[in-house]
């Protein structure tokens, strides 16, 4: 199938198999931040933004992105590095495997929610699993990050 989509604002035109999942297409183009953690649409590792909304690229056919804009972690370098600094400050990374999907969802949350409560933060991020930590350090990092962003 002939498709045209934008990945991190760069246009890609391709003839693809209609059953190729977005995660596999993105990885075939070298966007290795997008990872498969669970195979059951539960872990959130494969999160990318489709027209600004966070979606599971493991549960999205590439043809669904035809004509649309996809953003991966690689496309949000500045914001990602900034938030990554907050995570490092709180010791929120252990093995780091879940971080790309987690950060993509945090950045989507920042865009969507205004002054979220702790419950709202937890609900927004409950689809991102981390098997090393107890999420406390991530939560501290998010609160400090949102606090700073509020002052901006």
């Amino acid at each position: 199938m002939q498709i045209k989509l934008w990945i991190n604002n760069k246009v890609f035109e391709d003839d693809i198999q209609s059953d190729i999942l977005l995660i596999d297409y993105l990885r075939s183009k070298g966007f290795y931040s997008v990872k498969r953690g669970c195979e059951t649409a539960n872990c959130g590792l494969c999160t990318v933004h489709l027209e600004g909304k966070p979606v599971l690229s493991c549960s999205t056919l590439t043809v669904k992105a035809n004509g649309l804009h996809v953003t991966t972690l690689e496309g949000m370098k500045e914001e990602v590095e900034e938030f990554g600094g907050f995570m490092a400050d709180q010791g929120a990374e252990q093995c780091g495997f879940c971080s790309p999907g987690f950060i993509m969802n945090v950045l989507a949350m920042k865009k969507e929610l205004v002054n979220p409560t702790e419950l709202e933060i937890k609900q927004y991020l409950s689809g991102n699993l981390c098997r090393c930590t107890g999420y406390m350090s991530q939560l501290r990092a998010i609160k400090k990050y949102l606090e700073l962003k509020k002052e901006d």
Binding site: N42, T47, S59, N105, G127
Partner: peptide
Amino acid sequence: HIVGVQFRNC
């Protein structure tokens, strides 16, 4: 409670 925001966007 259904999985996560990313799942419910799909």
